[in-house]
Simulated assay, not measured.
Amino acid sequence: MSQCHGPKMKMDADLHQDKKPSWIKVRLPNDPVFWSTKSLITDLNLVTVCEEAQCPNRWECWGQGTATFMIAGEKCTRACGFCAVKTAKPDALEDDEPIRVAEASRRMKLKHVVITAVARDDLRDGGAEHFQKTIEAVRTMNPGIVIEVLVPDFNDRDWALQMVMDARPHIFNHNLETVERLTPLVRSRAKYPRSLAVLKKAKAMVNGKVATKSGMMLGLGERKEEVLESMDHLLDHDVTVLTLGQYLRPTPRHLPVVEYLHPDRFAEYKQIAEEKGFRHVASGPLVRSSYHAADFRPELDILEDADRVQPIHGLDLQPEDLPIPAAPSDIVKATVA
Results as ranks from 00 to 15, higher is better:
S2V: 08
M9L: 14
M9I: 12
L15K: 15
D18Q: 14
P21L: 10
P29E: 09
P32L: 09
W35A: 05
W35F: 14
T37P: 03
V49W: 00
E60W: 10
W62Q: 05
G65I: 03
T66E: 09
I71T: 03
K75I: 00
A79S: 15
F82V: 12
T87W: 02
M108D: 04
K109Y: 00
K111R: 14
A117G: 01
L123E: 03
A128N: 06
P143A: 08
D156M: 13
L161A: 09
M165T: 02
P169K: 03
N173D: 07
L176N: 00
L185H: 12
V186R: 01
S188R: 08
M205C: 02
M205E: 08
G219H: 04
G219T: 13
L220M: 15
L220S: 12
G221A: 06
E222H: 09
E229I: 01
S230G: 09
H233F: 05
V239Q: 02
T243A: 07
L248G: 02
P250K: 08
V257P: 06
L261R: 13
P263E: 09
D264G: 04
D264I: 08
L286N: 09
S289C: 05
Y291F: 13
H292R: 15
F296T: 13
E299F: 00
D301M: 04
D301A: 03
D301H: 06
E304Q: 14
D307F: 07
H313S: 10
L315P: 01
E320Q: 11
D321P: 04
A327K: 13
V332Q: 15
